[in-house]
Amino acid sequence: MDLIKEINEKYQALEAEIDKKLEKVQAEEQKLERQQERIAEKSTAVQSPKVLSYEEALQRNANTLKSLEIAKARLRSRSTYSPVEKLLQRALENYKRELESLNKQSREDFKQDEKGEDNLIMQSVLDANCIRKKTGESHRN
């Protein structure tokens, strides 16, 4: 009895696995069919263009020409020389020069400060030596 039960359970498990795989295949088939339907709808829509009346065609063409002229004017205005751009370029160059001179000045000031600190240290050492000599002389006297 146990043997028959085991065989039944084994085949039930295999059957359930096959059912799951079959469901996946059916879902993929449905998905593929929907995609094919969409492609067919798009191709039929492309194949049958709307026939415009003469007035509608004139209006569409006029709008197209108008939008093309606007685009052409925008491109022309962007490609022409603008004095404002030159002024901005000069201001940028002046700013860069001023920034460089400030950086150079600050570097020179820093170097002078370092030299000044070195001089102060040397002066302090010399002053300390003088004080030692004077105090040493006063102690000897």
Rank of each mutant, 00 (worst) to 15 (best):
M1L: 09
N8M: 09
Q12N: 11
L14G: 03
L14D: 10
E15D: 14
A16E: 14
E17I: 05
K20C: 06
K20N: 12
E23D: 08
K24W: 14
L32P: 06
R34L: 15
R38W: 12
A40L: 10
A45T: 10
A45Y: 11
V46C: 05
Q47Y: 15
S48K: 14
S48V: 15
S48P: 00
V51Y: 09
L52R: 11
A57W: 13
Q59M: 02
N61R: 15
S67V: 02
E69M: 02
A71R: 06
A71T: 03
K72I: 03
R74E: 06
L75I: 06
R76D: 03
R76M: 04
R76C: 01
S77A: 09
S77C: 03
T80H: 07
Y81Q: 05
P83K: 00
P83E: 03
V84T: 07
L87E: 10
A91F: 01
E93W: 00
E93T: 02
E93H: 01
E93R: 02
Y95F: 08
Y95E: 07
K96Y: 00
R97Y: 07
N103E: 12
K104W: 02
K104Q: 07
G116M: 11
E117F: 11
L120G: 05
M122F: 08
Q123S: 14
S124L: 04
L126C: 07
L126E: 12
A128Y: 05
C130A: 15
I131W: 02
R132V: 11
K133D: 07
K134E: 12
K134R: 07
K134L: 13
S138T: 09
R140Q: 12
